[in-house]
Amino acid sequence: MLCEECNNREARFAVTMNVNGESVVRHLCPECMRAMNANMRGGNIAGVLSAILSAITAGEGMRRPEMREKEPAEQLPDITCQRCGTTYVQFRKSGRLGCPGCYEAFREQLRPMLQQVSGGAQHAGRRPLETLEAQRTRSRQEELTRLMQQAVALEDFETAALLRDQIHALAEEGGADA
C-alpha cells in the first residue's frame, strides 16, 4: 500500500486518527511519519497557527494520532524475555513490556519502531545521577587528554607526564565505581 501523504513510498505505519468521533486509519511511510515528528524541532508553530486567524474556515475535525506499527502479515518472532517470561507476541498484543530486560531481549524488534516514531532513536535528555557522575569523569578525561596533546605538541614532556598520570588515576577511579 502506498503512503497516503506522499502517494509515493510504501506505507509502513497505520496511524489511527479520530475525525469527528470516527476512527480513521491513515497509512504513512517512514519518511512522512518522521517528517510529522521532526517538525517539532523546527518550532514552526507560530507561522502555521497564524494561518488559523486569517483562515477561519470550517474545521478539519479532531485528529488524535495514536502511533502504532502496522501488524506485518508474516509470523511474529518467537522470542521470550529470559528475565520475566514475557513473549514478543504478548508484547505486541498488550503494547506493554514485561520488565526492563525486555528492551534487551526484543532490542532488534523494537529498534526500527522506535527509530521511525522518534526520528533518531538516541536519548537526548537527563541521565540518572550515577551516569551523570560518569559523564563528568569522561568530560574531565577528555579535557586532560586535550591538554596532554597540547603539552606534547609544545614538547613540554614533564607536564604531559603529569597529565597522563592524572588520566590514569581518573580511569582507575571510574573502574572502581563500576
Binding site: 524541532r41 522506535l114 522518534s118 536519548h123 537526548a124 535528555g125
Partner: peptide, 8 residues
C-alpha cells in the same frame, strides 16, 4: 507525544 530523541 514524543519522549525519545529530544531533551526535556
Amino acid at each position: 507525544q514524543i519522549t525519545l530523541g529530544r531533551t526535556e
